[in-house]
Design a protein around this nucleic acid. Structure first.
Length: 194
DNA sequence: CAAGAGATCATCT
DNA sequence: GATGATCTCTTGA
């Protein structure tokens, strides 16, 4: 299985979000390696997308999204949680894919400890949970996905059947709030919601 | 089971 | 000073 290269992330954000389904998210950490199958993603596309943070302009926080594809955009929200995004498309075009849920495959014990939960389905079935289970925080903001700290591997399975849904938690985004920019593996029980 | 509240802080106005 | 790309717990039926 190969590490995904930068050219993959340079595709359109929708394509990246869809093709990430079934691939493997890997996090290498001194405490051990955690790995999971990506089952749910969301696309945040450019300056005109009112749900995309970068629609408010180029700021310190959104800077990474304006940079080259294949880097991590990690931000902190609600005073508690980190969110993991993978930057897509070309330089100066701010877009990214939010990783919303993964199915835990390796490092499960480590995830259980970090999450203080024994329920497999509860370890990474949500963007905040997943960051907790994988020890992802803002120290990884800007990390190169072609490096050895956090990256994605090709899944063994061929392209899976998927569903689309409106994105979660973006009621403020006007006509953008109902766009079907959320992608999930059909019927997968590790998704954050159906 | 569904709905609601509270937690808590970086970021931008 | 307001607000969130969330989660968990509590309540009530």
């Amino acid at each position: 299985m190969d590490k995904i290269q930068r050219s993959f992330y340079q595709q359109t954000t929708i394509d990246v979000a869809r093709q990430l389904l079934g691939k493997l998210l890997v996090r290498e950490h001194p405490d051990g390696l955690t790995l999971g199958r990506i089952v749910e993603t969301e696309a945040y596309i450019g300056p005109q997308d009112l749900a995309c943070h970068a629609s408010k302009g180029r700021t310190r926080r959104t800077e990474v999204m304006f940079g080259p594809a294949g880097h991590a955009y990690v931000y902190f929200i609600y005073g508690f949680y980190n969110m993991l995004n993978l930057v897509t498309e070309i330089v100066d075009y701010p877009a990214a894919v939010l990783i919303r849920a993964v199915e835990p495959l390796e490092g499960v014990e480590l995830m259980k400890t970090r999450r203080r939960s024994n329920s497999l389905r509860d370890l990474a079935s949500g963007p905040g949970k997943l960051c907790q289970a994988f020890a992802i925080d803002r120290s990884l903001n800007g990390a190169d996905l072609c490096g050895n700290v956090i990256y994605v591997l090709d899944g063994a399975a061929p392209l899976t059947k998927f569903s689309t849904r409106p994105r979660v938690g973006v009621d403020y985004a006007g006509k953008w709030k109902n766009k079907p920019f959320r992608f999930l593996i059909r019927g997968n029980k590790f998704a954050s919601k159906p």
